[in-house]
Every structure is written in structure tokens, then in C-alpha cells.
């Protein structure tokens, strides 16, 4: 029997580590991976709570979140590819065109 509090704290740490990655990392792909970490934290929270309540809804929810994460990753990576394709000839330092 795992105390629910432990699970939730673990999940929160995962979520926060993901957040730290999002905020601090400059590499886009790693930032996206950090988002995945955050989503995992959410999933673990849901599953932990579901376990504590002895019901399945939380798990079903986290199932949905996995699908959602997949869809998000697909779109995000597609945009990324599009950026790098258009950027090939451009200087890397000039990251954003839209700065005012």
C-alpha cells in the first residue's frame, strides 16, 4: 500500500521539474519534452487520486491525457519542422522576427 501523499508529491515534483525545464531551457525540443514531463506529473496525480478513491475515473482521464499529449506532440513537432525548414538560410541569432 503506497500512501497517497507520497504519490502526489512525486507527481508534483515531476510537474515542477517539467516546469523548470520549460522555463530554463532554450532548446525547443527539450522544452517540449519538459512539457511532456509536466503532463506526466498530471497523469500521476490523477492515478494517485484514483487509487486513493478506489475508482477508475482518474485513470480514464489520464488515458485521455496520453492521447492528448500525443496529439500535441504531433502538432508541435510539425511546427518545429516547418520553422527549421524555413530557417535554413537564416542566421541563428536572429531568433524572432517579431520583436517590438
Amino acid at each position: 500500500m503506497v500512501p497517497t501523499g507520497y504519490v502526489l508529491v512525486l507527481a508534483a515534483v515531476l510537474f515542477l521539474l517539467g516546469l523548470v525545464g520549460v522555463v530554463l531551457r532554450r532548446n525547443v525540443i527539450i522544452v517540449m519534452m519538459s512539457v511532456e514531463l509536466m503532463l506526466n506529473g498530471v497523469n500521476m496525480t490523477l492515478i494517485g487520486f484514483a487509487r486513493a478513491r478506489g475508482e477508475m475515473f482518474g485513470q480514464a482521464f489520464s488515458f485521455m491525457i496520453i492521447a492528448l499529449a500525443a496529439a500535441e506532440a504531433a502538432v508541435g513537432l510539425a511546427i518545429l519542422v516547418a520553422i527549421f525548414r524555413t530557417r535554413r538560410t537564416v542566421n541563428v541569432d536572429e531568433i524572432s522576427l517579431m520583436r517590438h
Binding site: V35, V42, F49, A52, E72, G76
Partner: peptide, 24 residues
């Protein structure tokens, strides 16, 4: 699109975490 996506993804993560807590 990417900027929007990235921020949106983080926002979604927060939304989901909030929902998870409410559910809990």
C-alpha cells in the same frame, strides 16, 4: 504558431493539473 503552441501547451498542463487537484 510555435510560440503560441508552446505557451498553450504549458497552459494546458496547468489546466490539467488544476483539474486533477479538483478531482482529487
Amino acid at each position: 504558431g510555435f510560440k503560441y503552441f508552446l505557451m498553450g501547451a504549458v497552459a494546458s498542463a496547468f489546466l490539467l493539473y488544476g483539474i486533477a487537484l479538483l478531482y482529487g
